[in-house]
Amino acid sequence: MSAPLPTPPLLIEEQDDRVLLRLNRPEVRNAIDQSTVDALHEACALLEREPRVTLIIGSGGTFAAGADIAQLRERRLTDALAGINSGIFARIHRLPMPVIALLDGYALGGGAELAYACDFRIGTASVKIGNPEPGLGILAAAGGAWRLRELVGEPLAKEILLAGRVLSGREARDAHLLNELVEPEELEAAGHRLADRIAAQAPLAVRLTKSAFHAPREAHPLIDNVAQAVLFETQEKQDRMTAFLERRKEKR
Rank of each mutant, 00 (worst) to 15 (best):
residue 193 R to K: 13
residue 88 I to H: 08
residue 55 L to E: 00
residue 36 T to K: 13
residue 135 G to L: 09
residue 130 G to N: 01
residue 47 L to D: 09
residue 193 R to L: 12
residue 152 V to E: 04
residue 212 A to Q: 03
residue 46 L to S: 10
residue 121 R to I: 10
residue 29 R to Y: 13
residue 209 T to V: 07
residue 32 I to R: 06
residue 185 E to V: 12
residue 57 I to W: 01
residue 100 I to T: 06
residue 203 P to G: 09
residue 101 A to Y: 03
residue 149 R to P: 04
residue 120 F to E: 02
residue 89 F to K: 04
residue 176 H to N: 13
residue 91 R to S: 06
residue 130 G to K: 02
residue 219 A to P: 05
residue 17 D to A: 09
residue 250 E to V: 11
residue 69 I to R: 15
residue 84 I to D: 00
residue 90 A to S: 10
residue 170 R to C: 09
residue 240 R to Q: 05
residue 109 G to R: 02
residue 248 R to N: 14
residue 106 Y to Q: 13
residue 78 T to E: 06
residue 20 L to F: 04
residue 56 I to N: 07
residue 90 A to Y: 00
residue 176 H to L: 15
residue 205 A to L: 03
residue 231 L to K: 01
residue 193 R to V: 13
residue 68 D to V: 05
residue 61 G to D: 08
residue 104 D to R: 10
residue 130 G to M: 08
residue 32 I to T: 01
residue 84 I to V: 08
residue 7 T to R: 15
residue 196 D to S: 14
residue 113 E to T: 03
residue 241 M to H: 02
residue 91 R to A: 09
residue 196 D to L: 13
residue 63 F to V: 10
residue 220 H to K: 10
residue 178 L to A: 04
residue 119 D to E: 01
residue 247 R to S: 09
residue 57 I to H: 10
residue 91 R to P: 10
residue 145 A to D: 06
residue 243 A to V: 04
residue 151 L to V: 14
residue 109 G to I: 02
residue 86 S to L: 04
residue 67 A to I: 15
residue 195 A to Y: 01
residue 126 S to G: 15
residue 154 E to R: 10
residue 219 A to H: 13
residue 44 C to R: 08
residue 153 G to S: 00
residue 165 R to T: 12
residue 141 A to H: 05
residue 107 A to C: 07
